[in-house]
């Protein structure tokens, strides 16, 4: 066993977490859980950024992560407000109840 892990392993972990997040988005009904899955996907991307930052010796990866976290915070705030509003009108946060775009 080598004494240090290669970048490949971080990328692999990032992909696995991303896929699990995507599965959450695709398969779960609960709007809040869907949202959490999105956060997970963002996190997996962040992990990749930081790993590459270390790998390449460049600080930009961390700066980008910083921005992603900021935007994610804003997104969560608005998203949760939307969910609250939808819950008020529909008395439900099941995303299947929101299908006004049905053709």
């Amino acid at each position: 066993m080598p004494d240090t892990v290669s970048i490949d392993w971080y990328v692999a972990l990032s992909i696995i977490l991303f896929t699990i997040g995507a599965m959450g988005v695709l398969l779960r009904r609960n709007a809040i859980v869907v949202f959490m899955s999105v956060e997970m996907m963002l996190n997996s991307a962040n992990l990749a950024f930081v790993a590459f930052s270390r790998y390449l010796g460049d600080l930009d990866g961390q700066v980008l992560t910083f921005f992603v976290i900021t935007v994610a915070a804003a997104e969560v705030a608005v998203g949760l407000a939307l969910i609250v509003t939808i819950f008020r009108t529909k008395q439900s946060i099941n995303i299947d109840d929101i299908n006004t775009m049905k053709g």
Binding site: L27, N30, E39, A73, V76, A77, V84
Partner: peptide
Amino acid sequence: VYAGAIMVLFLFVIMLLGAERSGSRTE
């Protein structure tokens, strides 16, 4: 930010709406 603020917000909303058991996982 994440583990603290954002997730607290999530938990807060879940409890506010009482939506922790909104249906099964995949119905």
